[in-house]
């Protein structure tokens, strides 16, 4: 008698991920597909992938997906959700997408209390274009546009977008997690579940920021990248519930 202990979630297509070895997107995709299946919302969830490494998310999620221009995920998700308020709508965005080119769309969606869920994957660089400085790049972190490291006077400091969003009245739940360890992966899944449940209850804007390793652009082994999240990234972006109005 065989017992299934691990299988493809219902809402993942049978397609191999294109993501680099050690990249966090694959883990996050899987967690989301598991949550969508467990909550029984796969037939009414619409996802909005970003411009960036995760643009091809529509090749992996077996749900309706509509691509947004770079940074406009929250605006596109707003248009979908307002038209179909009974559906579950999420945007999936990287740190450059959400915290630089799409800052305005994100802040105002949160401020309107749009009943959408945003998955904000923070790998502290622009991954797809080859590792340029993002607004979230750490001080002294090397990138292809900060040779010698990010300099506070020249480049500014890493932006705490999630903390900024928490200041808006419309944001109901914002948590920062990571996918660099088993423990953190489990916490991330809990956070994603909570964010979707908040939307299902119609409570307002929910966002999970997920610190995610980018071994390719960090020029580290996957194991070192996971370690670096604990030792450096999470020092600048602490893992915590930033706002929870449901308590």
């Amino acid at each position: 008698m065989e017992k299934v202990v691990f299988k493809r979630p219902r809402y993942m297509k049978e397609a191999p991920f294109h993501y680099c070895p050690g990249c966090g997107h694959s883990i996050i995709h899987r967690l989301m597909a598991e949550v969508i299946e467990e909550l029984g919302i796969g037939e009414k969830t619409i996802g909005v992938p970003p411009a960036g490494c995760a643009v091809l998310a529509y090749d992996y999620f077996d749900i309706d997906m509509g691509e947004a221009p770079h940074g406009r995920g929250a605006a596109v998700a707003t248009g979908i959700k307002r038209t179909l308020p009974d559906k579950i709508v999420f945007s999936y965005q990287g740190d450059g997408d959400i915290a630089a080119i799409g800052t305005a769309e994100t802040i105002h969606a949160a401020n309107r209390g749009e009943n959408i869920t945003v998955i904000f994957v923070n790998n502290s660089c622009y991954g797809m274009t080859g590792g340029q400085m993002a607004p979230t790049t750490l001080l002294d972190q090397n990138s292809t546009t900060t040779p010698g490291g990010r300099d506070k006077d020249r480049d500014g400091t890493p932006i705490d977008l999630s903390e900024m969003l928490a200041l808006t009245q419309g944001a109901v739940y914002i948590e920062r997690t990571a996918v660099n360890s088993i423990k953190n992966i489990r916490k991330t899944k809990k956070a994603i579940t909570k964010a979707f449940k908040i939307q299902m209850a119609g409570l307002g804007f929910s966002l999970v920021e997920i610190l995610s390793p980018c071994p390719t652009n960090w020029k580290m082994s996957p194991i070192d990248a996971c370690r670096w999240i604990d030792e450096d990234v999470a020092q600048t972006f602490p893992l915590k519930v930033i706002k929870d109005e449901t308590d």
Binding site: I46, P69, R72, A75, V76, G79, T83, L84
Partner: peptide, 10 residues
């Protein structure tokens, strides 16, 4: 882009 989303949704 809101219009883009609304149009996607029909």
């Amino acid at each position: 882009n809101m219009v883009l989303g609304a149009s996607m949704a029909g």
